[in-house]
Computed example of a mutant assay.
Amino acid sequence: MLYYLFSYLEKFDIPGARLMDYITFRSGAALVLSLFIAIVFGRRIIDRLQLMQVGEIIRDLGLEGQMKKTGTPTMGGVIIIMSILIPCLLIGNLSNVYMILMIVATLWLGTLGFLDDYIKVARRDKDGLKGKFKIVGQVGLGLIVGLTMVFSPEVVMRENIEVENVENHEVVITYEPENVKSAQTTIPFVKNNNFDYAYLTQWMGKYAVTGGWILFVLVTIFVVTATSNGANLTDGLDGLATGTSAIIGVALAIMAYLGGNIIYSSYLNIMYIPGS
């Protein structure tokens, strides 16, 4: 919301109105705001859950000391979701398809998690939401994400290309000057790291590209489902997902910041007119 307010204030040449144009400022403001929400409201939410006696229902797995975890406040994921969504809604560019997908995915899986905890607490059912409903929800989200990436004109990429340096005859990796729509993904730590899914569907002849996109969607569904279940399994008895999520969050923040800077720089290069 503030992103659009500042954009509107730019028309009146108000000092500081262009701050929201800088990714560094927006990412820093989002970090401070999320920490503020987690610290200030998180403690109050936990105290409220304890007052309401909303505690964890522990399944007897035969582990030593596991029953000591009974009564540990559950539904703490609400704190994480608030710390993510509120800064995004206030500071983020909500016209960006990636931002929309992130918000939808957070709300979607957050709702699944809430239902799981609610069933455990309200119905005293230690199994929570049935596994088949979780899988349906995760696969449904993966399908939405995959199809959005297929059909959205904003989801494009810069293909890597090999260019030979004439002076020393070394091959360097650079980028095509134009964005393209392609069913490719990036393979980390590989020199020429664009992998085209259509390569695996060449046997389909003229439908190879279509087959590549179908395979792309299936892989997206698998990644979303596996990641979501991986977080659930990691959480376990001791809330291990908190620490691992923090590490993952830092890594994603760095990649988002660098990726945003690249996109913004490309935008400036397109908008720049020599001599203007």
Rank of each mutant, 00 (worst) to 15 (best):
T185M: 10
W213C: 02
L9K: 01
I144K: 01
K181N: 11
A183G: 02
D235M: 10
G65F: 08
V40W: 06
G259K: 06
K11L: 15
S182Q: 10
K120D: 06
G211P: 05
G55T: 03
P274M: 13
L5H: 04
S34D: 04
M52S: 12
M99P: 03
T148E: 03
I45P: 01
A29H: 05
K69R: 11
G113Y: 04
L115Q: 01
Y267R: 14
A256I: 06
T210V: 10
V180Y: 10
G28I: 06
K69Q: 08
V145D: 02
L129R: 06
Y118E: 05
I135R: 14
V209D: 13
L233R: 13
T220H: 03
N229V: 03
T234L: 15
G211Q: 09
R59V: 03
K191I: 07
A256S: 15
G128L: 07
G77K: 04
S34R: 05
I214A: 07
A17F: 00
Y175E: 15
G28K: 07
D60Q: 10
Y197T: 13
L129F: 02
I86P: 00
K130F: 01
L112W: 06
R123N: 14
M1A: 08
T244Q: 13
G230K: 12
N192V: 13
S245K: 10
L268Y: 14
I86D: 05
N160E: 11
D196C: 13
V219G: 00
V156D: 13
K132V: 12
V180N: 10
T225D: 08
V171Y: 05
T70S: 11
A30E: 01
T201H: 08
V121N: 02
V180A: 08
V40R: 02
Q66F: 03
D127W: 11
I58N: 02
